[in-house]
Nucleic acid binder design. Structure first.
Lengths: 113, 113
DNA sequence: ACAGTTGTACGATGGTTGTCGAAAGAGAGG
DNA sequence: CCTCTCTTTCGACAACCATCGTACAACTGT
């Protein structure tokens, strides 16, 4: 039986119209989550365990939930893996240009010493 | 003796080059602070006590410190008052277009019910 | 059936945060 | 001097958050 038919808490994603800006900002205001989002922009979809972050798996699950409940990422199940993708269209539909602006600002580089 | 010469902890503002994006995002990811910044964009400078927020004065002081240490606002003392202003030029110099993009996104309105 | 892989759930923990009230400092004005 | 206004500091509190280890569940392969 595939996971999508299991009797377990399904992956909850907010509607595009329900995405709250403050939730998005809070989700992005964390170095680990920012790394996840940046990695995800370069590649359309990617399994959970393949992100260049240095935290425990359970911590990674926590960060994915924060991003998912904020409406930043989408996760789908496929066999044993959970594929993660940016909700680019939804985010850009609700807040045009915002994600590019924030990610672009991040590329400007860290603060000077 | 004016306040600027007092023996009290001076107002510390980070250098423009030291402004960290994650700190800015975290500072803006709060409804009270977002209201402060939005109010500040409409008016160039404004005394502390005149913001349309519904929190205790000590809480307001706390939020001003978060915004100031993130480099979002500048505060100067004048007699009995503390004038607060957006660091628009510094912010836009470091992260061009970012603040407009975020505030514009906020004007898009709250999440649908 | 069995072992390996992938990711989650739970419980705990130390740190951070938003909130407030009470007290106090500093200036303006009488 | 005394009082009033504006704002801060301190101490406290509950809530939240990032982190981890352990245990577990589901799928994949042999």
């Amino acid at each position: 039986m595939p996971r999508s038919q299991r009797r377990r808490p399904a992956l909850t994603h907010p509607d595009a119209a329900e995405i709250d800006l403050l939730d998005v900002l809070h989700a992005l205001a964390d170095p680990t989550r920012m790394t996840i989002v940046r990695t995800l922009r370069a590649e359309p979809e990617r399994p959970c365990g393949t992100f260049p972050v240095d935290v425990a798996p359970s911590t990674l699950t926590h960060h994915f939930r924060v991003l998912r409940e904020a409406g930043v990422i989408h996760q789908r199940e496929d066999g044993n893996r959970r594929w993660t993708a940016l909700r680019l269209a939804d985010l850009d539909g609700r807040f045009p240009g915002l994600l590019d602006s924030i990610l672009g600002a991040y590329e400007t580089g860290p603060a000077a010493p």
